[in-house]
């Protein structure tokens, strides 16, 4: 058994390629046979990935899902920020400048609207659950923006660890729900063209959620959604501990 562990750990990224490849094959097989192509193979693969992440997190007690399982550590590198961003940028290859210009203004508005609306909703939920401290309300609202904005805001305005953890959890719920929910709701919200994809990316903002959600809906839309989504977290980190916190403080 030692031999297996040595080889798997030493070649962890290569193992990850093989494992993910196998998962993709199974997912496309299931999509084809069980759902007759109604559910996209990549949607099933992403759902399997999330299930595996839950299992990995429970078994190992770590925070990086299946990547904390010794033999599958390479998943952490393959699915980490560096590879994700590299592949996202590559999807922009062949995008036409005219498509970007068409949705330019709507895209910019959607980023602001997305941050502010998610914040208001998150803050309102915090108030409904009985929070009256502006620091906690702001941090939880910021968590509903993304799971990065939550802790950045919380630490900047001095929220308690428990509240920061809650804000991360709220952001994770959002991210996972966008991954799973996007392909299901895409038709009803008109998410089938570059313009609406840019608005979608700006409104949702969670890069992981948008990246996976659009991949499972229509891979052609990915570059448009990803482009606006990457500005969202930055704007959230800018507004959260400043303007939004001041407004909440004035109200409570």
């Amino acid at each position: 058994m030692d031999i297996i562990e040595t080889v798997f750990v030493r070649n962890n990224l290569v193992v990850a390629f093989a494992v993910v490849g196998a998962v993709m094959w199974v997912s496309y097989f299931l999509a084809d046979k069980l759902t007759a192509g109604r559910i996209h193979g990549s949607a099933i693969a992403i759902a399997l990935g999330l299930l595996a992440a839950y299992w990995g997190g429970t078994v190992s007690g770590g925070s990086r899902g299946v990547a904390d399982v010794t033999l599958l550590g390479g998943i952490g590198l393959m699915g980490g920020g560096m590879m994700r961003d590299f592949a996202i940028v590559a999807t922009a290859f062949g995008v036409h400048i005219s498509e970007l210009k068409k949705a330019g203004i709507a895209g910019v508005i959607s980023i602001f609207a997305g941050v502010i609306v998610s914040f208001i909703v998150g803050a309102a939920v915090a108030v409904m659950f009985g929070y009256t401290d502006p620091t906690a309300i702001t941090t939880i609202g910021a968590g509903a923006v993304t799971y990065i904005v939550g802790p950045v805001t919380g630490e900047a305005i001095g929220a308690s660890d428990a509240v920061i953890t809650l804000s991360v959890a709220a952001g994770l719920v959002k991210s996972i729900l966008v991954m799973i929910g996007t392909p299901l709701i895409a038709k009803r919200i008109g998410l089938d063209n570059p313009q609406s994809a840019m608005v979608f990316g700006g409104l949702m903002g969670t890069t992981s959620g948008v990246a996976a959600g659009l991949a499972a809906t229509d891979p052609k839309l990915v570059p448009y959604g990803a482009m606006t989504a990457t500005f969202y977290t930055g704007l959230g980190c800018l507004l959260g501990p400043s303007v939004l916190f001041f407004i909440v403080s004035a109200m409570f």
Partner: peptide, 23 residues
Amino acid sequence: YIPIVVAMAARQNVAAATEGGLL
């Protein structure tokens, strides 16, 4: 891109998301 996104999904902190409770 899609395989990388699948790997990304597999390394999310899903367990923490489920432990965050109703709020």
